[in-house]
Simulated assay, not measured.
Amino acid sequence: MSILITGGAGYIGSHTCIELLDSGYDVIVVDNFLNSKRESLNRVQQITDKKLTLYELDLLNREDLENVFVENTFDAVIHFAGLKSVGESIQIPLRYYHNNITGTLILCELMQKYNVRNIVFSSSATVYGMTNMSPLTEDLPLSANNPYGSTKLMIEQILKDVFMADNSWSIALLRYFNPIGAHISGRIGEDPNGIPNNLMPYITQVAIGKRDKLSIFGSDYDTHDGTGVRDYIHVVDLAKGHLKALESVMNTTGVEAYNLGTGVGYSVLDVVDNFEKATGKKIPYILIDRRPGDVDACYADPTKAKKELGWVAEMSLEDMCRDSWRWQLNNPNGYEEK
């Protein structure tokens, strides 16, 4: 079976490529390398000892993307591609709306034209907004409080409407929580551009000496230690969730949303403590003011994914910390060989 992966060179995409190749799928990746590195896919092929096909292109370029559909026959699409920084989306909202939504519209139009009706979409827990209480279930009312989250919410609605218009489509909306960790080989992992937006790459950069200390935003939340609580999930568990969702969309029609999380909330200080225990590295930190828009706690109820997809996150927070550190230690400058 042949699977098109948009944004397949990114952090979650590259780990999903490994799981797909190891499971016998043919993988075709399209990526513009705006937030990813070509080297990640070289390493995916080395780890799996299998080849994938790569097209360097932007989803906004309809002609280039259509050539991919002309040259290949796909059984399904896994759609990762999109701009992904909450803070940046607030600063440049028009770019986020144009890129994420227009790119998805072009992709879906070409899927329709070339009779590909199965898609797994990379959504986000941001679609639950700020007012729902954790644990979060898929049937809660949805909202968004930043342009990035709004694009995820809008694309979910677009895909629901696509199914309403044509019931032959099969769509899985995967709502991620907080992916961390790296492949056990230490060969691929999270390689952010510039200052990391996410907690774990910041911690690992402090541990390796690239940054002096960790700044923890907020110490007065209504949590057991005052720092924000989130549902951290190992990126390999997350990647395996995509395979389960893919198997489901290949054998059904309809549109379903699934939380991909552990169902357990850990605070920022819990993560720091587990990292120190797993690696023996001390992480100096300071407590500073909250960021606007951050909630006290956000974690999943993953019951639906277990029941309908047969998927459960298996790796512990200690596993996530240990694997994140192995990646950073082996690749102090990410994919840049210096």
Rank of each mutant, 00 (worst) to 15 (best):
V249F: 00
V249D: 00
T223K: 01
G265T: 09
S267M: 13
V272W: 10
D237C: 08
G226I: 12
R230E: 13
A239K: 08
F217A: 15
I216H: 08
H224Q: 04
N259T: 13
Y258V: 02
G265H: 11
F217T: 08
G254F: 04
K244W: 04
A245L: 05
V272G: 11
V271Y: 10
K240P: 01
V268P: 07
T253W: 00
I216M: 06
Y232Q: 10
Y266C: 04
H234M: 02
L238E: 14
D270F: 10
V235K: 03
K277R: 15
K244I: 03
E276N: 06
E276F: 05
A245Y: 01
D237K: 05
S267E: 12
Y258G: 02
T223E: 05
L243T: 03
N251S: 15
N259E: 12
K244L: 06
E276K: 02
V264E: 07
V249K: 00
T279H: 10
G261K: 06
V255N: 00
A239Y: 15
F217K: 05
Y266L: 03
F217H: 15
H224I: 07
V236A: 05
T262N: 06
K240V: 06
Y258A: 03
D222S: 07
L260R: 12
H224P: 01
V255Q: 00
F217C: 09
H224A: 02
G218Y: 12
N251Y: 02
A257M: 03
T279E: 05
H242Q: 02
Y232H: 14
A278Y: 12
D220E: 07
D270E: 08
V272S: 11
V235W: 12
N274M: 11
D231F: 13
D270W: 05
R230D: 12
V236P: 06
K240L: 09
D231Q: 14
G265D: 11
A278P: 07
N274F: 11
G263W: 15
G226K: 06
V264R: 12
H224D: 00
H234P: 04
A245V: 07
G263Y: 15
Y221I: 01
G218F: 14
T262V: 10
